[in-house]
Structure formats: C-alpha cells, structure tokens
Design a protein around this nucleic acid. Structure first.
Lengths: 190, 190
DNA sequence: CTGAACTCGTTTGGCCTCGAACAATATGGG
DNA sequence: CCCATATTGTTCGAGGCCAAACGAGTTCAG
C-alpha cells in the first residue's frame, strides 16, 4: 500500500490521524504487503516474459489452466483462474482471436461451452511456462526453499479464512440491511 | 493461481506436462498464493466496507494516501498508491466527482497538480479506515501477531528483490533486443 | 407434458489498468 | 533571448474486472 516512504514515517502518520482508535498494525502491515507483493510480481512478469508473447497476466493464467487440466468447461476455467465468468468470456475471446485456444459446445449439455488448447497454444506454453517459473523463482530469490514453503503456508491460511468465513462475515456486517447495489452493471430491460 | 483442485492434483498435472524440465515448485507455490491471497482480500474488502461507500479498492488506497500524508503532488500520490500516473488521473477524477478530493494547481510549478482532501473526504475516511482495518484483521484472523509480522517480512523481501533487481533482470532477459511494444497505447498523431 | 426453477455463458455499464504519445511548463546553456 | 532537453499531468487505445441482467437450455415436480 505504501510506496517509498519509510515504514516508520507511515506508521507515525497513521498514529497521528487515529491515535486513539485501536488498530491491528500487524495485520495492516501483513495484508498491505500481500497486495504490494502481488502487484510487483505481476508487473515484473508482464514486462518480461509475457510482453514478448503479447499476453496479459490473466490471459496467461487462463491459458495455463487449460494447458494443465486439458479441455474444460468454461465455468471451471474461470474458477481455477480466479476470475468471474463474465471476465472469462472476454479473456477467452482474446485468446481465441490469437489462435491459442478454441471454444466448442458441450456435447450433451447445450448451456455449456468447452475450452481447449490449439497446437499453437501448446507450443507457446511449453516454451513460456519454464520462463514464467524462472521469474517466479527470481522474485523469490531472497527466500530459501523453506521460507517459500512457509510463505505459501501463511498465505493459504489467509485464503482459507476468507473462503470459509468471508461470506458469513459480509452478511454479518450488513446486519440485514440490503447491500448497496453496485454502481455499474447492466440495466434492467423493461 | 489454482482454485478448488487439490494441490496434489495440480502438482501431478504440472509434472505430467513438464516432467523433465526442472521447475522451482516452492517458488511457484509461494508466488501463486501471493496473487491468490491478494485477490481474495481485495474481493472481500470491496464487497464489505467499500461497497457501502461506493469506493473501489484503488479509489480507497488513493484516498488513504492523501488522507495520511496531506496535500500532495499527484505524481507522489500515484507512486505511494502503486499505480501509474495515467491511472491516477482517472481515479482522481472519480474521487473529485464524488466530492472527496480536490485538485489544485501547484503554486510555483505550472506543470504540477496538487491533491488534497475535502471535509467530506476527511469525514468518510475517519469512519471508513477503522472498518477497513477490521477487515484486514479478519483476513489475518488465523495468524498470530508474530505470524503476521513474519508474513509481512517475507513479503517485503519479495518486494525489495523486485524493486532492487527487477529492472536489471528485465534488461538482461531482453539481451539487447528491442522490447516488444505494447499492443495498446495512444497512436502517434501524424 | 408442461411450466416453474435452476444453471450456464454472454452482454452490459462503470470503472481500473498500463504505457505510449502528447501538450504545457520549466530549466539550463549558448 | 532562444532553443534543446527534461519533467509534469492528461489523453488515448486495447483490454481486464466485476456483478447484475439476460437468453438459451435443462431438470424436475405435478
């Protein structure tokens, strides 16, 4: 969350703003850094290995999912990639226009669509994935193998906490009140 | 990166695809979880405390920066918030239209613009920030205080590695070759 | 069989996102 | 003073992002 300002400086400024309100500073530092690290990694990878392949981070992840798991229903692809189904429609369209992926109707259920790799997609991924992993390794270069495992473990607990209890928590915060409708979104037809 | 599929299953599939290519599996797991955790936290916070305030994550971060550090040159706001200056222009416009922030010309340098809070912005943040922090604490609920500090420390090392060595690494990967120009971007005028 | 209820992928609207191109301004040397 | 260079914030284009609304298709109860 914070850029080049020193941590101490930021902490002091926060204290000055909310000196009396009790805050969880440890959680603040941990979560803020999760976001900062994610952005830094994405930036680095997009501007190194993904740039030449003209792929975005999300495009790569979707491609990766289809590559690893093979032909798949699009809803499962979206879930694995961690994006909404609406987003997947657009990303899949982009990948399809680049000839890396093909969309096909589900053989027995007319509602579904399947996504699978083309030969060009296969070829690209077998070249790109090792390079991608090398940049992950570069990002983690200051961590030992054990520390990587530790980091992964701590983060998995954060993810699990939100997946297990997030929805209940959000409902609890609303306290029965109707959730504020999203500012954007499709308009009703009538 | 991976959703509900079991870790073991994913590992096995990766091995099957690239059995002979040596990969850093520990770094892969660590970095993938950084991204997953960041997305999960953002999702949760946007759908709880930020929803009612009609703020996006980025809008909140920008507001937070101006709130904490006071009137600021927009380039510094962008840097602190971790977004590009082009993005900041749009986000600041949104916040200004909501009456939370004001833009003013720099007193002595005509190129620059200053951003500062309105009274409404102050008021919103003093209410919103404690709630935001409470959700950070909720996300970190399965971590002890010491583990939060540990997590923050590990992530800071990842960020530092990319900040210190990222650019050199990207240049090295290019090997003198001209970087692929971005697909999008403003067209040349002539 | 038929219609209500559900489920899937797509569309839509508002916004964020980057980086390159640009206009406006500033700075420094000649 | 003038002009080249550097630095700002803005504009632009392609695309990612979500959730709500939607249409097409399925399922199941009556």
């Amino acid at each position: 969350m914070t850029g080049p300002r020193s941590l101490a400086e930021t902490e002091k400024a926060v204290q000055a703003k909310l000196g009396d309100v009790p805050l969880r500073h440890d959680a603040m530092a941990a979560i803020a850094n999760v976001y900062r690290a994610a952005a830094a990694v994405r930036q680095h990878v997009e501007n190194s290995v993904l740039r030449e392949a003209e792929l975005t981070w999300t495009g790569f992840v979707v491609l990766w999912v289809v590559w690893i798991f093979g032909e798949m229903e699009t809803r499962h692809v979206a879930q694995e990639a961690g994006i909404s189904k609406g987003t997947l429609t657009g990303v899949a369209r982009t990948l399809e226009s680049r000839g890396l992926v093909v969309r096909a109707p589900h053989p027995s259920d007319g509602r579904m669509a399947m996504l699978s790799m083309t030969a060009a997609g296969e070829e690209l991924m077998s070249r790109l994935f090792p390079a991608f992993n090398a940049e992950e390794a570069f990002a983690a270069d200051r961590l030992s193998g054990a520390e990587c495992d530790q980091l992964a473990g701590l983060l998995r607990r954060v993810v699990a906490q939100l997946e297990d209890n997030g929805e209940a928590r959000r409902l609890e915060l609303l306290e029965g009140a109707a959730p504020t409708p999203r500012r954007s979104g499709r308009k009703r037809k009538d």
